[in-house]
């Protein structure tokens, strides 16, 4: 899938540009100053979790879930829904029963 990376060429584990990209992807809306602060902290944290690279995981399968369950399904039976009022009752902006957001481009 993707290649592994052991460390950053700049000597930092994660740089401002990457933190900025991550903030944008996650819609965190951080200011320049906040990004710089976060970059410093993330750099330390990523350096710490990079300890993972020392673990010998050759031949080990990944574990996404621990329950060991399979084929948990439900029958195709419709059941009553929430009322439309309850469905949008917590929304800050609505219009004629619909949720309102700034226009998609």
């Amino acid at each position: 899938m993707q290649q592994e990376r052991a460390s950053s060429p700049s000597g930092r584990w994660i740089d401002l540009e990457e933190v900025s990209k991550v903030s944008s992807l996650a819609r965190l809306g951080l200011s320049e100053e906040e990004l710089e602060g976060l970059a410093r902290q993330l750099d330390q944290i990523v350096a710490a979790v990079a300890k993972l690279s020392e673990a010998d995981v050759s031949g080990v399968d990944p574990t996404a879930q621990v329950g060991g369950l399979h084929n948990i399904c439900r029958d195709d039976e419709p059941r009553p829904c929430l009322s439309a009022e309850a469905a949008i009752g917590n929304a800050s902006q609505t219009s004629a029963g619909l949720l309102r957001v700034p226009a998609i481009q």
Partner: peptide, 12 residues
């Protein structure tokens, strides 16, 4: 028109 609309409305 979608281009002129100031907002979008969501039906789930």
């Amino acid at each position: 028109e979608i281009q002129n609309s100031p907002f979008s409305l969501v039906d789930l």
